[in-house]
Design a protein around this nucleic acid. Structure first.
Lengths: 209, 209
DNA sequence: TAGGTATTTAATCGAATGATTAAAACGTTT
DNA sequence: AAACGTTTTAATCATTCGATTAAATACCTA
């Protein structure tokens, strides 16, 4: 980010520490509720360094956001465009892959959807998912519909259901834990169960008349 | 809110205007991103009035939040505890009822889940949903499991799926519109389709082995 | 109408927060 | 070690934002 990097002495310090702290706090509390002083403290550096390396809070945010979005959606595109896997396989891989990702970063979905709602147009460009709907996955969906192997409805319904059943438990975790009276440990067990359950359910749904 | 109310001259002005504006902005932008000046402007009143009537931003927020949570979850409890309706009927009623509610207030879920994550313990008490898991709905679920009419898994799975398929489209609306390239009008059509589709899917899911 | 209470306004305060600056410390090269 | 650029620090600025105050206005009651 700064003029010249000393050498290619790839020290992941300061600059990276700031970005990591920023990612942590932004995803946890959102943009507005995160103070630059919080970030500097979490990163264990002086406040001025944040502005030295990233110019401003907003610039830092945009950088972090871009990385998050691209990383988050890159996976989908790859899975969906794999011409070697069947429809069912894609669903299984997607569910397993994204559940794993979300177990590591449970705050991500809520954060993404919140910021996406705040300025949709601005962020839409940053996620290279324009081609999702032209993916091989959708060709397969339409093909199966044509062969009457799955019920013919708007393909988006199936996508919504799939993502919803994966992502929603993480979005609603506090609520779900509360109403079911279970702790983090048991909640994780439940999540793990869903990795095998959700693909089965999706299959059922696709054949529901 | 203030000392004595003049008479019972029930003018819904000022005090109510502030609360309404607050609800609007809080749900749209979240607590941190909402400035008291925004609220006063939206309500068309002087900034000082906000503090005159509600003491502080936080007090106003808690009031609004309590009302939102109670209103939002009151419906669920009623539907779930109705001893006259069958399991399938409950699902149909829930889906129709909550889709209708969310069509009117699409920002609500994201807001609730975000604030719920920020301070789970504080808000948990405010939503009278502790008894959801002891509801008649769950008795019916367990009963049907025992009769082998539906597959025996943790009942929470079914609840998650049901809520997820209703709520998620609203949470992810900007994303979904973008990747599917559809406008608000067509998105609403899709949502309306789901009112009849989701209950069918839930039935299928409950019988998936 | 007079007196009192409730409501509203304009002006301002103090703390919090994003950002900047000037100087110090560090490291590398010559 | 001298000179130079990079990195870090402490102190400070300017603005925003929540909150308060004192005075003005509207409203009701006697």
């Amino acid at each position: 980010m700064v003029k010249t990097k000393k050498k290619d002495t790839l020290d992941l310090s300061t600059e990276e520490k700031i970005k990591k702290a920023a990612l942590n706090l932004f995803t946890k509390k959102g943009y507005a509720a995160t103070r630059t002083r919080d970030i500097s403290e979490e990163a264990g550096i002086n406040l001025a360094l944040l502005n030295y390396y990233y110019r401003s809070k907003e610039k830092l945010f945009e950088l972090v956001m871009t990385e998050i979005l691209q990383n988050f959606f890159r996976g989908i595109t790859q899975i969906f465009n794999d011409e070697k896997t069947s429809l069912d396989e894609k669903v299984r891989i997607f569910v397993a892959s994204y559940t794993g990702l979300l177990k590591q970063q449970p705050d991500l979905p809520l954060f993404i959807f919140h910021e996406l709602r705040m300025n949709p147009e601005k962020l839409a460009s940053k996620m290279g998912v324009n081609e999702v709907f032209k993916s091989f996955f959708f060709k397969q969906l339409r093909s199966e519909m044509h062969r009457k192997k799955i019920t013919r409805i708007h393909p988006l319904h199936y996508v919504i259901n799939m993502i919803a059943m994966c992502v929603f438990p993480f979005i609603a975790a506090p609520l779900l834990k509360h109403i079911a009276g279970i702790d983090a440990k048991n909640f994780e067990i439940l999540i793990d169960e869903r990795i095998t359950l959700v693909p089965k359910w999706i299959e059922s749904i696709m054949q529901t008349k």
